[in-house]
Nucleic acid binder design. Structure first.
Lengths: 148, 148
DNA sequence: TTAAGTGCAAAATCTTTGCAAATGT
DNA sequence: ACATTTGCAAAGATTTTGCACTTAA
C-alpha cells in the first residue's frame, strides 16, 4: 500500500479541497484526532478529546459531511455506537468502496480496520443480490489479551 | 433444522419459563410480533405496531431482558438502529452462540438471519484473538430487486 | 404472599434544526 | 463579496431511572 492509497497520509488541507469542503480549523482538528490513533474513534470520544474547542453540533456536521464525501467511514461498535475511521482513496462522494474486515475488541470496544485481511466469498440464497460485505471480527486486541 | 432447533417454533410461555421470566401479556405480545415477520424488527417498528398497548419503557425493558436471556439477538441495520430476531436454541443467558450471516437490504433496510449460509474462515493478524464473526451481507432483497 | 413486572412521570442523553455571526475562497 | 461553515439556543427524539401499582407464581 503506497502513501497515496490511504487518506491517512495525505495532506489534510488538500484532502478537504479535493472533497470541495472549505479548509477550516475545526475540520483540520477532527482529521488530526481521527488519524491520531490506530483504532477508529466514536463521536463521544472525539467530543471528550476535543472538549469545547468545537461545538458538539459542528462535530456532528463535520463527521456527517466527511462520511458523505468519502473521507471517513462509519463502523458500529458492539454497543451500536458509530465509530469513524479514514477511508482509503478509492472512496468518493456517496460511494464507499473500502470494504475490509473490522476487528472489534470485546473488552475495550476498540475498532480496527484490517485492510490486510482478505474478504471471504459468501454464497447467498438466490433471493438476495449481494452488493457488499460488512465483516466484524470480534475478540481480544493485543492489549486486552495481556490483561486476562 | 428441527422445530426444536429454533425458538421461533417453541411455545412462547414455555420459552419464557425456561428463561426464568414470568409469563406476562406484554412479553407474549412482543414475542408474537417478533416472530410475525421473516425479517428482524426494530424497537421503533415494534412500537409502531404495538401502539400504546405496551408502554414504551416496558418495551425497552422486555427487549433487553430477552437479549440478556438469549431469547433474541440484536443486529444493527445500516442506520445503526438495533433490530431484534429470535435466537436459535443454543443461546443461553449472557451467551449468544448463534453466529450466522445477516442480510441487510440497502433499500428497505430489512434484516434477515441466514442460518443456511456457512460462515467463512477468516485469518486475522496474530495480534488479535478471534472469538466470533459478525457478517452482514448488504444488497437487495427479493422485493426490492423487482422494483428496480 | 411476595418477588417480578408494568406504567407513568420525569430526568438524562443524544441528535437535529434554525438562524445570526464568522470565515474561507 | 458571497456562499459555507460555525456556534448558540432551542426543539425533537431516544433511552434511562425512580417509584407506586399490579400481577404471576
Amino acid at each position: 500500500m503506497t502513501d497515496e492509497k490511504n487518506k491517512k497520509n495525505k495532506d489534510f488541507a488538500e484532502l478537504l479541497r479535493e472533497s470541495k469542503l472549505k479548509v477550516t480549523a475545526p475540520r483540520l482538528r477532527v482529521l488530526n484526532e481521527i488519524t491520531q490513533k490506530d483504532a477508529a474513534i466514536s463521536q463521544p470520544d472525539l467530543e471528550k478529546i476535543i472538549g469545547k474547542d468545537i461545538d458538539r453540533v459542528t462535530l456532528y456536521r463535520i463527521l456527517s459531511s466527511f462520511e458523505e464525501k468519502g473521507i471517513v467511514h462509519k463502523i458500529f461498535d458492539l454497543n451500536g455506537t458509530a465509530t469513524y475511521a479514514m477511508c482509503t482513496s478509492n472512496c468518493t462522494e456517496n460511494h464507499h468502496h473500502d470494504q475490509h474486515v473490522h476487528f472489534i475488541c470485546s473488552i475495550c470496544n476498540s475498532v480496527y480496520c484490517l485492510n490486510e485481511v482478505s474478504l471471504p466469498r459468501i454464497n447467498l440464497p438466490t433471493r438476495f443480490t449481494l452488493h457488499s460485505l460488512a465483516i466484524n471480527a470480534v475478540g481480544l486486541c493485543s492489549s486486552c489479551q495481556k490483561e486476562d
